[in-house]
């Protein structure tokens, strides 16, 4: 085969492969993705039966242990005063505490939100917090 034609074929194959990969990636991202909501967005947009990721801060004094494996807590939108109550069963990460930023996958079960088992993640609080009260 003519070398130029061979190169053109190779380039076409490579670009097609890249296009297929990119298309699949975009499709999977939009079809398999779950909306990541703040408390305000969740209250406004959640529909019964839907599954969402709730991100926010655990409200002080809201953590109530119902039994050894189940608890309820409220998550507040950092940009407003709206809160969402979550009933959660499963593993609780060590840094989980009031005032900490968390992410949890929740199912809207008709007005209340139930956390998916073992889906609670908590930000590690030790790193890189802004210095407070320092004097240079």
């Amino acid at each position: 085969m003519d070398p130029n034609r061979k190169r053109a074929v190779r380039l076409t194959v490579a670009l097609t492969a890249a296009l297929v990969l990119a298309t699949a990636l975009v499709y999977v991202s939009f079809s398999a993705g779950r909306d990541e909501f703040t408390a305000t967005q969740l209250l406004n947009r959640a529909k019964p039966g839907g599954q969402y990721i709730l991100a926010g801060t655990v409200v002080d004094g809201s953590v109530v242990h119902i039994n050894s494996s189940t608890m309820t807590f409220k998550v507040i939108d950092p940009h407003s005063s709206k809160t969402v109550a979550v009933r959660y069963s499963g593993l609780v990460p060590d840094p989980f505490a009031p005032g900490r930023a968390v992410m949890v996958t929740v199912n809207d079960s008709g007005g209340s939100f139930v956390g998916q088992e073992n889906s609670l993640t908590t930000k590690c609080p030790s790193k890189y917090q802004t210095a407070v009260g320092a004097s240079d």
């Binding site: 990969l21 699949a24 990636l25 999977v28 991202s29 939009f30 398999a32 993705g33 779950r34 909306d35 990541e36 909501f37 967005q41 990721i53 991100a55």
Partner: peptide, 14 residues
């Protein structure tokens, strides 16, 4: 206008 998390399962097929 909405954050969509794809999460760890999306990495596997690629």
């Amino acid at each position: 206008g909405t954050k969509v998390s794809v999460g760890p399962p999306a990495f596997t097929p690629f």
